[in-house]
Simulated scan of single mutants.
Amino acid sequence: MKEEILRAVRFIVENGLVKGTWGNVSIRDKDYVYITPSGIPYDKLKEEMISVVDFNGRLIDGLKPSSELPTHLEIYKNRKDVNAIVHTHPVFSTTVSVVSSEIPPLIEDAVMILGPEIKVSEYALPGSIELAKNVVDALSDNNAVILKNHGLITVGFDIDEALTASLVCEKTAEIYLYTLNIGNFSTISYEDAVILRNKYLNGYRQIKKDIG
């Protein structure tokens, strides 16, 4: 799990999804959560520094966990299908967080991997229980949620799905902002978006699980 965390933080840095020490990554492993520690630069992060906590937030191993631990735990408690969470501060998704309440169903890969629409959660202070609950409410059964005036959270059945979701959401946010500037755009109907989402969950995703 710790090796997977290190791989994930390298990925989000290399893809420009975070700057500095902002953002966090976690993986659920049975009764424990592995999560990036608070305030450690990603290029200095080592396996022994990674925090391991139980579902009461009690530190088992490593350094002090990210301040966003309450949000990670709340998602895991409410989504049994989620085993990995990636929280980033990418430019386009964060821009959407200050100008809109959701990204509608625009493109097929987004509605398949992320959900029929990408909601923006209500604002709350970082690290707060209120933020955790707002995120869970807006995330619902989807794989991405944008945090008001804050950033992006994506989830997955494994870390690769959560990381892919981050890239797809950021691309979709960029497209959405372009379409707002143009002023005239089409959307996929909600009914078709649900069909596409189910096709991914019951088809492509299941194939990945089977060969993974």
Rank of each mutant, 00 (worst) to 15 (best):
H89M: 11
I118E: 00
L106Q: 05
D158A: 09
I103W: 09
G151I: 03
E108C: 03
A132R: 09
L167Q: 01
D160Q: 06
A173T: 10
L106A: 05
N142H: 12
I175K: 01
V111Q: 01
E174D: 14
D141S: 11
V120C: 12
I85V: 15
T187C: 15
T187N: 14
S186R: 15
N181I: 15
L139I: 12
D141N: 13
V96L: 12
V136E: 02
H150N: 08
A138M: 07
L147M: 15
V99M: 06
V168D: 00
F157R: 12
L167E: 05
P116I: 06
K171G: 06
S97V: 13
L163I: 07
C169I: 06
N134R: 13
I103P: 03
N142R: 14
V96H: 08
V145S: 10
T95A: 15
S189Y: 02
N142Y: 12
V99H: 01
T95M: 15
F92H: 15
L177V: 12
P104G: 06
V168C: 01
A144H: 07
A138F: 04
N134T: 13
I85W: 06
I153T: 10
A173Q: 10
I118D: 00
A173P: 05
V111R: 01
N134D: 12
T95R: 10
E170F: 02
C169F: 02
L125D: 11
G156L: 02
L106V: 09
K171C: 02
L114H: 02
T164V: 08
I129D: 13
